[in-house]
Simulated scan of single mutants.
Amino acid sequence: MSTRHPLKGRTIAALAADGFEQVELVIPLRALKRAGAKVDVVSLRHGRIRGVNLHLPASRVGVDKTISEADPGDYDGLLLPGGFINPDLLRQSAPAREFVRAFAASDKPIATLCHGPWVLASAGLLAGRTLTSWPGIRDDLVNAGATWLDQEIVRDGNLTTSRGPQDMAAFVPAMLATFTETAPEPSTTAPGGESDPQRNAPPGLAVAALRWSPKPSVTAVVGIGLVAAARQAMRGQASQS
């Protein structure tokens, strides 16, 4: 395996749905492909899924396979990007939960960040694990049995986690390293330790984004109203039939 393309011959699944955080999927995808990996974007549906920049709509990414078409045995590792909506949709999907469990059962490397660990929690995979995430979901992960650390990168066997977009510079090389290894490294933290405390204030990144976000355009407001009206009309027709 060349040092220039350390992931040549490896195939990685990037499990994502609408509402994925743009930088948390697009930047890792580029890094993986530059390292020589083949990457399939696996999702709940065909077509192109919509990303977000924090809370604002961003560009779309094409889906290579749906979960029902993808075989976990064909992949050497799993990338789970965050965003708020994306993992919330995935964690409610039984096939998505089973897809993630298959990687854990085979001890294949899993790299995730931000709200991505929500999916692991719903899949029942966090008891006794040590990880990090977006600080806002700390309590969810602790209640799922994990030890939560407020660090930019946490390694625990086959699991590599990071807090979010603010730690992307650290996450990408850590992700590449975990997908390059032929066997999981020992945990960098003591399992079953004490979690770091809750934060006393939300991350400034999120607060600033909301403060400086643009006002909704007239077109957007009208569009939302038309969608709501169409859905209401469809419900009315369904109740009459």
Rank of each mutant, 00 (worst) to 15 (best):
N158K: 05
D64V: 03
Y75G: 08
P87D: 07
L131G: 02
R211C: 09
L78E: 06
R235V: 12
L141D: 11
L44S: 03
S187H: 03
V61Y: 08
N86E: 01
L29G: 02
A206P: 07
P57D: 05
D167R: 07
A209M: 12
L125A: 01
T112P: 03
R129G: 03
D88I: 03
D74G: 04
K215C: 07
R30V: 11
K215N: 10
V222D: 09
G193D: 13
A220M: 13
F171E: 01
A37T: 01
D156G: 00
P184L: 01
P87N: 08
K8P: 04
H115G: 04
P57C: 06
G36P: 00
H55Q: 12
Q198T: 12
D167Y: 07
I110S: 00
A238S: 09
D88M: 08
K8I: 10
N86L: 05
V26A: 14
G225F: 13
L89H: 08
E69D: 13
I110A: 01
L120Y: 10
W148K: 10
F103Y: 09
A31F: 10
R231W: 13
Q240D: 07
V23I: 15
R97T: 00
A228W: 06
Y75M: 10
T182W: 09
I49K: 04
T178F: 10
A123Y: 00
P72R: 04
G128I: 06
V42N: 08
Q232W: 14
L54S: 11
I67M: 03
T132Q: 14
R30A: 14
V172G: 08
A104Q: 06
N86R: 01
